[in-house]
């Protein structure tokens, strides 16, 4: 066993930080895109003609039965073929994560919409709103308020999942730690440091979600 060398971590901080920026950017885009697309999919499953609803359900169930790594590999292969030129790991990762997470978000959002009583939709339509207006102005605001904690919890899982871009060599925080670990021969230091950072961030975030839940329960 060798002496713990904290310098290996200190010297790598700028590289690790740029990795963290990549992780957080990926999280932000996939979360925003995933929730937007997830909302559309959830609405399609609940309100679209049967054939469209079935396609939306197939999308969700299909993506949910395949490992995320497989999806990352798929898009890493397909995106350049479809676009017709190399686009790099980041673009294909963003597309893969957004489409993949949309399937999971849409299940949460669908449950959230169903949790808003049917009377609300009926009342909104009776008051002369179109179905789309009723969703936008009446149902979705209530549903989103209620499901915010679950969406955030899913996003913490998404943040951890971004580490999987390791398999296509995109330099996120995890990959940056791994590259440094192998280059410096300091696996123990770098992996323990990375674990501490992930644990700290995710634990803090999930405590915030718990606090939010408690505040929502009392108000």
């Amino acid at each position: 066993m060798h002496a713990f060398d904290i310098d290996a971590v200190r010297l790598a901080l700028p590289f690790l930080w740029s990795g963290m920026i990549t992780s957080l950017t990926l999280l932000a885009i996939a979360m925003t895109g995933g929730i937007l697309l997830g909302t559309v999919i959830a609405m399609l499953r609940l309100s679209a003609p049967r054939a469209v609803a079935a396609i939306a359900a197939g999308y969700v169930n299909g993506l949910r039965s395949v490992p995320l790594i497989m999806v990352i590999f798929w898009f890493y292969l397909l995106v350049p073929l479809i676009i017709g030129r190399p686009v790099g790991a980041f673009v294909s990762a963003v597309i893969a994560f957004t489409l993949f997470e949309a399937a999971y978000y849409s299940e949460i959002i669908r449950a959230g919409i169903q949790g808003v009583s049917r009377g609300q939709m009926a009342a909104a339509q009776a008051a002369g709103l179109s179905r789309l207006q009723a969703y936008r102005l009446v149902v979705l605001p209530q549903a989103f308020r209620r499901m915010t904690p679950i969406l955030l919890t899913q996003s913490i899982a998404l943040f951890q999942d971004t580490s999987l871009v390791y398999v296509i060599g995109l330099h996120d925080f995890m990959t940056a730690a791994s590259i440094t670990a192998n280059r410096e021969g300091r696996l123990i230091e770098l992996y323990l440091f990375a674990a501490a950072i992930y644990l700290g961030l995710c634990l803090a975030a999930s405590q915030l979600v718990q606090a939010l839940k408690r505040r929502m329960a009392t108000s």
């Binding site: 951890q160 580490s163 999987l164 390791y166 992996y191 674990a195 992930y198």
Partner: peptide, 17 residues
Amino acid sequence: NIPLLLQLFLWYFVIPE
């Protein structure tokens, strides 16, 4: 609260040391 990928690396590369 630690990504599974990192947990595997910890078990494989770090814990034996």
